[in-house]
Structures are given as structure tokens and as C-alpha cells.
Design a protein around this nucleic acid. Sequence first.
RNA 1: GGCCCGUUCGUCUAGGGGUUAGGACACGUCCCUUUCACGGAUGAAACACGGGUUCGAUUCCCGUACGGGCUACCA
Length: 505
Amino acid sequence: MEKRVRVRFAPSPTGGLHMGGVRTALFNYLFAKKHGGDFILRIEDTDQTRFVEGAEAYIINALKWCGISPNEGVGFGDGPHAPYRQSERKESGIYKKYADRLIESGHAYYAFDTSEELDEMRKRLEAAKVVAPQYNAVTRQNMRNSLTLPEDEVKKLLDSGAKYVIRLKVPRNEEIRFNDIIRGWVVVNSAQVDDKVLLKSDGMPTYHLAHIVDDIEMKISHAVRGEEWLPSAPAHILIYRYLGLENDMPKLAHLPLILNPDGNGKISKREARFPVFPLSWHDPREAMPYIGYKETGYYPEAFVNILALLGWNPGNNEEIFSLEQLSALFDFERVHKSGAKFDPEKAKWFNQQYLRKHTDAELAEVFKPILKEKGYERSDAFLADFCRLVKEKVQFVHEFWNHGKYVFEAPTAYDEKVMTKKWNDKSKAIYSAVTAKFTAVNDWTVDNITKSFHDAEAEVGKVDMQVLRVLVSGVAGGPQLFDMLALIGKEEVLNRLNIALSTLS
RNA sequence: GGCCCGUUCGUCUAGGGGUUAGGACACGUCCCUUUCACGGAUGAAACACGGGUUCGAUUCCCGUACGGGCUACCA
């Protein structure tokens, strides 16, 4: 029988969760949904020195905003395998128990080396031109551990409470292979793997031990994580093997990384000229917060859609997908092996697609408070009309203001390019005639405005619509002109025209 | 440096032994439009390189180059 699909997202609370992490969470979520399985949030806080206040809450909020909530885990009601925080799980002695099992079977050992001694070893090896200094089958023979020390001395050290770590005893020369769902067979020689620390001297497990213990205990079926874990996967295989759990271990899937758009490397918060966090993140150790996608005006649906298509695609030409659709379509077979550079421009385009799905009334509702901040209030009907006219020009709701503020405010200047090119000594008479015709309009509707404009043209000849636009709005572009005039209102339009005509010569 | 992973238009990608190598973003041109857009059409733009295998390779294999990841008592 196939194992029930149970996947986990297991971040460490060392900072805000950035878009790469969110994508890992998303792929886990989609895979779980696709197979009717479980999606678990586990907090890997085994490094107490890197704990950051607020990071865990941030991770939870970010997942919620994206709509990819786990159905089990920290912040989501826990579940049958509580607790889901490794620092709390440690209390039961579970990690030590597994480490002891490895000691007993001879696949792990105690090491008493101080960090100074380890430094010395590395320096010594570097001086000896060893290319990759590491604690391994060869070098461990010269270090202070339960393999080199006499048995009674080891016992004495242990009894006296000396600091020690437990290390994995990696064989000297053995081929380790595993079948990655995304990458296929990966082969590494154990000579490349160092004797990883399993249990630290503060009694906490390292990631390597902890995630394996928890994945087993929590019956995880697939470990889906970023490519940065690929190099340590062989060590993990060994741990499962020595624990006698190779047949119970989760299937491995290493996701390609999200790369910086320009230059190189994986996305980094510092150099990015675009948001990297889903929500604004203020690291307590830093002065300035990083702005998030949410605060930039992205819809969570758009953000998720963008992420889903970075490293995965459905195999056809469609690009706009809801979470539900993605859940039905997602498949590791269609996940790429290579990293994807993030394109901020296309991200904006995605948001635009989602913005257009909203009704005028919905957009108005969101724009209302933004407008109020600018000091203006209008009826819902007016705002819906406004949004209908301007929505095709914007990618974000907040852009409604920049693209349409002249609806609310009279111009203080007139687009120079248009005016120098099109305004001449005949203009004043022409637009005065237009103003006169407008004044005579009783019912200020688009039809009547259009008609009176034509009447003016019958009298004075062709009238340049763009100049009229500039006289009323100040700018060269904008929504359909007569719609705009109707929205602004007769009195205000006439006011603006009269001011324009009296200031321009 | 070593090890691992990767490489189709600028970017995201489809495809896959014989194709006019398809789509999307961005960009150019045109059409629609008495203004502004949307929209439509269209253009420029890619199989990293060298060897094999093959009747034929962008597709399979091997090298090279380039890119990325890892190289902690961090995850």
C-alpha cells in the first residue's frame, strides 16, 4: 500500500520567510492537496543562537496570507504529533535516543574536541594542502574521540560531564546513491561526506539528526526542500540506513533555486530591487524593514501564481491559475532541475491579470481608503465608475491615484510636450468655442458631451482632443476623454477650462 | 580549490532523433482609435561549445566552457 502523502515545510525561525521559502512551502502544499494528503508546519529551532524574535509568527502569517495554510503544525492547531517545535520535542529525549542507537550500533561516536582543536585541525590540513579539510574517516584518527581514546578514558570523560558531540561515523570509501524525484539518481562517494555532528554539545540535535527523527516520527512521505540540501542528502541516507530505516525514509525531492534577476546567486534580500518577502519584515536586528509583496500591492493569488510558475509549469501555454487549479495540476514530473531567475516585470503583469478579474465595485472598495488618505471622498457609485475608466491602465490598486488623480484635483500645470507642440494662437478661440458649447449642455452625459463637442467642431473646425484633455486634466494620457469629462462633472470641467483659457495666451 | 547539480530567445518556459523550434513578459512596427488605453496583428530574438552514436542530433553519450549550490557543534 502506498504511504499516505504527508509533507512538511520546516523552516527555522532565524528571520523573515522570503519568496524562495514560500515557494518551497507552496510546492509542498500543492503536492499534499493533489494527493489528498497532509501539509505540516514544523519549526526547526535547534540553533538557539540564531533565534529571531517574531520570525515564527511571521512565517505563520505569511503562509496564511498566501492561502497555503498547513493542516497540522505550529500555529495551525498542532495535531497528532505535537509538539511541532524541535526545541520542545527535544524535551522528550527523542533525538538523544536516536543518537544513542547509532552509538550502540557503532555508526556514531563521541567527540570531545574543542572548537580550538577543530580550528587547529583545519589549519593543519590547509597547510598540508588538503583541498577539503573535514572531520572524516582519516582525520578523526588524530582527534579526541571515542574511536581514538581508550575506553576507560571515554567513560571517565562522559561521567565527569565533559562537553562532547556525537558524530556520524561515515565510511571512508563507499558509494552512496539515492533517487531524487526531480533529479533522478545522484551518486556521491562517502569520502566527500564528513562525520556530521548529530548531537551538539548543548544537547540539541543538529538539523541532520533532528529532521530525520521528526520525518520518521511524523510519518513524512516526501521530503521536499531546496537544492541547497542536495550535498548533505548522502549523509542523511547514511543516517537512515544505520538506523535501519532506509525503507521507511521519505522520498527526496530537491527543488531548483530562485535566482536573482540580474547577476547571480540565489535571491537575497539585501541587493534586491523588488520585494523578496511576502509580507513586510522588520528584523529586530536591523534598522529598516523590508517591504513585502502584500504592502507593494500584490494580491496573494497573484503572488502564489508567480511562485508556482518559477520552476514548474503545467505543460501548456496557460499561465493564470488559482490555488485550486494548481493543486489539481501540480506534479514533480514537471518541476525543473535548473534554477529560475525571477523577473520582477512579469510579476507585475501577473498582478495586473488578477486586478482585472475584480469588479469595478470591488476595486472601488479597496481604493476608497487610499483616496481618503489623499483627502477626498466620493460615493461608491462614483468610485466604481472611476475604477472602470482607469483599471485598464494600472497593475496595482494604489496606482489608481497616480493615473487618475486629476479626476479629483484640478491641474496645476499643463503637459509641456503637448502644449508646445499643439497650442498656437488659434487655440484660445477654438477651446473657448468648445467651452461655450459645453456650457450649454443641460444633461451632462457622455452622449451629450460628445454631441456638443461635434457641434463645436462644426463651428470652428477640427478640435484636437488631446489638447482638450490636457486643459482639463493637465496630463497627456488617461482614460477615454468624454467618459472622463462626464465623471469629473460639468461645473468642474467648465471651471478648469475657464482657468486654463485665462492663464494661457 | 574540491564535490554535487544544472545549461532552449534578455527573462519565464513548451518541445524533443527529421518541427517554419511554439507560448508568455519586456521591446519594435502596424491596425482599431478625432484623445488615452485595452485589444488585435506582426517583427526582432534561443537550442553554450567540441567530439562522438546515427542516414539524420537542439534532442542520446562523453568532454570543455559557463552558471548555481555545498564545503560549521547554521539551517
